[in-house]
């Protein structure tokens, strides 16, 4: 997620902090695995961010009557 191409690191403390923001309690024995999965997802986000898309590219839906 840092856009630098460096490996994404997520700590158990990160998981706790982020979970608290959405009212989620993650059991202590699950935090390490959740941190690992979150790091994998953030690595995917990093891969997305590394591609510069044309400014006009947008995900807005198209409405047709």
């Amino acid at each position: 997620m840092n856009g630098s191409g460096e490996p994404v690191r997520v700590t158990e403390a990160d998981v706790d902090r982020l979970a608290a923001q959405i009212g989620l309690v993650i059991a202590p024995e699950r935090r390490a695995a959740v941190a690992q999965h979150l790091a994998a997802l953030l690595a995917a986000v990093q891969a997305i961010d590394e591609l510069a898309l044309p400014p006009a590219t947008e995900p807005a839906p198209r409405f047709e009557p």
């Binding site: 982020l18 989620l24 979150l38 898309l53």
Partner: peptide, 25 residues
């Protein structure tokens, strides 16, 4: 499935929208 779903709840909205932009492209 549980730990992957828990991790997914922690992603920021901007990640989803940037993925959607790439999808359109």
């Amino acid at each position: 499935t549980r730990d992957r779903l828990l991790a997914a709840t922690l992603l920021p909205a901007s990640a989803y929208l940037r993925a959607q932009r790439l999808r359109a492209w």
